[in-house]
């Protein structure tokens, strides 16, 4: 059991200025997840007649990409390749002071407390993050052969859960890692190559329009990514982009 002090960003709504508030989390078990610890704090706040801390979460098994907190200056907290919901309190010790902040980026306005609006990522996908196939009328699945290395690379890229930690970690608030993961997932597949030129241009342009910054190759994104999406995908996106200029 341990006692921990939390400094949590509280912001009533988009217009509110926001501030940090301090809470004491008492008798926290090492086996708890970070969000379960916040649950306990919130139960206490409710009983004290205060407003609980609002935070995004859903599947709590590290796959839906909903949870989004910067913990002591690191998106998703100190454990590598781990979402907040999968972060367990054994990563902390008694007496720790923990800062909890929302994702910060121009493209991610704060809605309330730790909840931000990430719809900009959806709009990047809408700009071209798909293969324009109709339902039905497709060939047999085994008619499209894909070499194992290509399939594996596509899968590596497709693991992105769209949580936005890359944007949160990036000093430029850039969504290049997110965008590149989708571009490279599809560009590695024969059925996705057909639209590759259009896709890379449309998606990066959409990213710019949403107010995300450019990539300065700090590689903070890869370090923060809970799924280990690699910055080599950004290089590959750039390659696709260069290729697109000659087509």
């Amino acid at each position: 059991m341990m006692n921990i002090a939390l400094l949590v960003w509280r912001q009533k709504n988009r217009a509110d200025k926001g501030r940090f508030e301090r809470y004491e989390a008492k008798d926290i078990s090492h086996e708890m997840s970070f969000l379960e610890m916040l649950d306990v704090v919130n139960e206490g706040l409710i009983k004290d007649g205060k407003e609980p801390i609002a935070f995004d979460h859903d599947c709590r098994e590290g796959i839906c990409g909903m949870c989004s907190q910067v913990i002591n200056g690191t998106p998703h907290g100190p454990a590598e390749r781990t979402t907040v919901c999968q972060l367990h309190m054994r990563n902390f010790k008694d007496g720790d002071v923990i800062y909890i902040e929302p994702w910060r980026a121009k493209a991610f306005p704060v809605i309330k407390d730790l909840i931000v609006d990430r719809s900009a990522l959806d709009r990047i996908i809408q700009a071209g993050g798909y293969i324009s196939v109709h339902t039905g009328g497709v060939p047999d699945a085994n008619a499209i052969l894909i070499s194992k290395p290509d399939a594996d690379t596509a899968m590596d890229a497709a693991e992105c859960i769209g949580c936005g930690a890359c944007v949160a970690a990036c000093p430029n608030g850039s969504a290049m890692l997110f965008t590149s993961a989708k571009v490279i997932h599809l560009a590695n597949l024969p059925q996705g190559k057909i639209e590759a030129v259009r896709r890379v241009c449309m998606m990066t342009e959409a990213m710019q329009k949403e107010g995300f910054g450019a990539c300065s190759n700090h590689y903070e994104c890869q370090a923060a990514c809970p799924k280990g999406i690699k910055v080599s995908f950004i290089s590959a996106l750039n390659r696709e982009f260069v290729k697109a200029q000659f087509k």
Binding site: Y130, I131, V138, A154
Partner: peptide, 12 residues
């Protein structure tokens, strides 16, 4: 068939 055409990276 549909999912492969969409680019779902099934194991190969």
């Amino acid at each position: 068939d549909q999912c492969v055409a969409q680019g779902v990276p099934f194991a190969r």
